[in-house]
C-alpha cells in the first residue's frame, strides 16, 4: 500500500496503526536509493510529502519550532550560522530541495550534517504518537547507537526545537569533505555559544553516532576563549572522539582534524562575539 495523507495528524494515525509495517518517506533521498538498488520495500509506504502542515517554521518562546518536513533548502535560509551552513553543505541544491530534517534525524547517519549542527544547538526533537501524544527529547539523548535512535516504530518525528538567534550568541560550522559539493563529511564540527555563556561542541563522522564532545565542553564552560584554552580544547576534542579507519580516511587523520576543527569553530564563535561588540 502507498498511503498519502494530507495532514500530519492522519499520518500519525496511520503510523500508530501500522507501526513497523509502514515506512515513512519524507524526502526519499535514502529510501528510494535503497529501492533503486533492488532492495524490496517489504512494507507499505507512508508518504509525508502531501502533509502541508509538515513543512512549517514557527517561533515560540525564544525558540524556533521546525516541522519534521522542513527541507535543507529551508534550513539554508535560517539566520543561524551553523545550521544554515551545515544545511548548505548537504548534497546539491536538488537534494536540499527534497531532503528533510526528520529524514536526517531518522536515518541517524554518523555523518549527518544536519544532525551535527542541531546537536551543537542543543536542539530538542519531538516524537509523536497518535494516541500517546508527544514527547520531547534532547537530541543528545536521541541518538543511541549506530543508526539507532529513540524513535519508536509507531512514532514520527513531528518537530525540532532550536533556540532562536536571540537566544544564541554565535554558532559556527566547519566541514571537511573530499570535494566541494555532493560530499560526505570526513569530519564535521559545529559549535554554539548561548546567552548564558554555555558552549556546545559537536562532531560528525567520528563515532557511531553524531556526537557531542561533552568532556571538551566542560573545559570551556565559563572560561574566556584564550589561545591556551583553545589549544587545550582542541587536544581534548581529539582525545574524546572515537573515529574508525575506513577507505575514506584513517582514524588518525580524523582525530587530528577534530583538533583543527574544534579550534576553528571555537575561534569562529569568538570572532562572531567580537563582531557583535559595540
Amino acid at each position: 500500500m502507498f498511503y498519502r495523507p494530507d495532514t500530519f495528524a492522519a499520518a500519525l494515525r496511520l503510523k500508530a496503526d501500522h507501526a513497523a509495517a509502514i515506512k515513512p518517506i519524507s524526502g526519499g533521498t535514502d529510501l528510494v536509493v535503497g529501492l533503486n538498488r533492488g532492495q524490496s520495500l517489504g512494507v507499505d509506504v507512508l508518504d509525508l510529502t502531501a502533509a502541508k502542515d509538515y513543512r512549517r517554521i514557527d517561533h515560540a518562546d525564544g525558540s524556533l519550532i521546525l516541522s519534521g518536513g522542513t527541507t535543507f533548502a529551508q534550513l539554508e535560509q535560517l539566520d543561524i550560522a551553523c545550521l544554515a551552513r551545515a544545511a548548505a553543505s548537504v548534497g546539491g541544491p536538488q537534494i536540499r530541495n527534497r531532503g528533510t530534517i526528520a529524514g536526517n534525524l531518522a536515518t541517524a547517519s554518523p555523518a549527518g550534517d544536519g544532525s551535527v549542527a542541531l546537536l551543537a544547538l542543543d536542539a530538542e526533537v519531538e516524537l509523536a504518537h497518535a494516541d500517546r501524544g508527544t514527547r520531547w527529547l534532547r537530541l543528545i539523548d536521541y541518538f543511541e547507537d549506530y543508526r539507532q535512535t529513540a524513535l519508536g516504530d509507531d512514532e514520527l518525528i513531528s518537530h525540532v526545537r532550536i533556540p532562536t538567534p536571540s537566544a544564541l550568541q554565535a554558532s559556527a560550522w566547519y566541514k571537511i569533505g573530499k570535494r566541494g559539493a555532493v560530499n560526505i563529511s570526513l569530519v564535521c564540527a559545529a559549535a554554539a555559544r548561548f546567552l548564558d555563556g554555555r558552549i556546545c561542541l559537536a562532531f560528525g563522522s567520528v563515532a557511531p553516532i553524531p556526537m557531542r564532545a561533552v568532556q571538551t565542553e566542560k573545559l570551556l564552560q565559563g572560561q574566556p576563549l584564550t589561545g591556551a584554552l583553545l589549544h587545550q580544547a582542541a587536544q581534548a576534542a581529539s582525545a574524546e572522539v572515537k573515529p574508525i579507519d575506513d577507505w575514506r580516511a584513517s582514524a588518525d587523520y580524523r582525530k587530528a582534524m577534530c583538533a583543527v576543527l574544534a579550534r576553528r569553530v571555537l575561534e569562529q564563535l569568538q570572532t562572531d562575539d567580537e563582531r557583535q561588540m559595540p
Binding site: T29, V32, R98
Partner: peptide, 8 residues
Amino acid sequence: TMNSCLLL
C-alpha cells in the same frame, strides 16, 4: 529542482 530518480 529535484533528482527524478529519488522521486516516487
